[in-house]
Amino acid sequence: MTTVTNGVNVQALLDAREALKKSPEAAQFVWRASSKWQNGVHTTITVKDFYGLGEERAHKSESVFQADHPEVFAADDNGITPIEYLLVGLASCLTAGVASVAQNRGIQLRSVEATVEGRHDIRGILGADPDVRNGYNDIKVTFNIDADASREEIEALVAQSQKRSAVFDALTNPTDVTVEVA
C-alpha cells in the first residue's frame, strides 16, 4: 500500500484506544465554554480549558466566538446565531471523522467539502404555535469528496464517520441537560 497522507495520526488514536480500554477513568473528559452577555441578543463565548486524561488541560490558545442574530430578527448581527453553531459542530465533527477513517483505511483524500442545512420553523421559539418545536425540524449534510476510492468506499467513509461522531450522536439522541443558577 502506498503511504496515505491525510494528516491524521491514526496510530496515536489506535494506541489511545488500546490504552483507554484498560483505564476507562482516563477517558473521562469535560469540555467547557464560558459565555458573557454583551447587549441585546449578542453574547461572547470563550473556550480554552478542558479536563482529560486525568488532569486539567488547555488549548494552545483561547478561542472567542460571537453569537448574535441577524437583522431580520431585529438584532445587530455581531455573529452567527446559536443554532448555527450546531451546524458548525456537526460539519467539523463529521469531516474529522471522514479524514480519520480514510487514513485508517488507506484512502488518500484530495478534497472534502460539506454543506449543512438545518430546516427550522421559528414559530416554535417565538411561541407562535405550541405544536412547533424550538429546534431544527431536520438537518441535511451533503458531502462532496474527491479521493482515491470508489463511490461505495466513499459512502462507507461517510457512514462510519457518522457512526463514530460525537456531535452526530449529541444531535440525534437525547442528552440530559441541567441548567441552574449559581
Binding site: V158, A159, K163, N173, P174
Partner: peptide, 28 residues
C-alpha cells in the same frame, strides 16, 4: 430507542445511517 422522558419514548434521529451501514455492508 434512546430514552424515556416525561412518559414518551425518544428515538434516535440517526436511522438513515443505520440503513446506510447495513446496505453498504450487505453489498460488500
Amino acid at each position: 430507542w434512546a430514552a424515556v422522558r416525561d412518559g414518551s419514548a425518544l428515538f434516535s434521529g440517526g436511522l438513515r445511517n443505520m440503513f446506510s451501514l447495513a446496505d453498504l455492508k450487505m453489498n460488500r
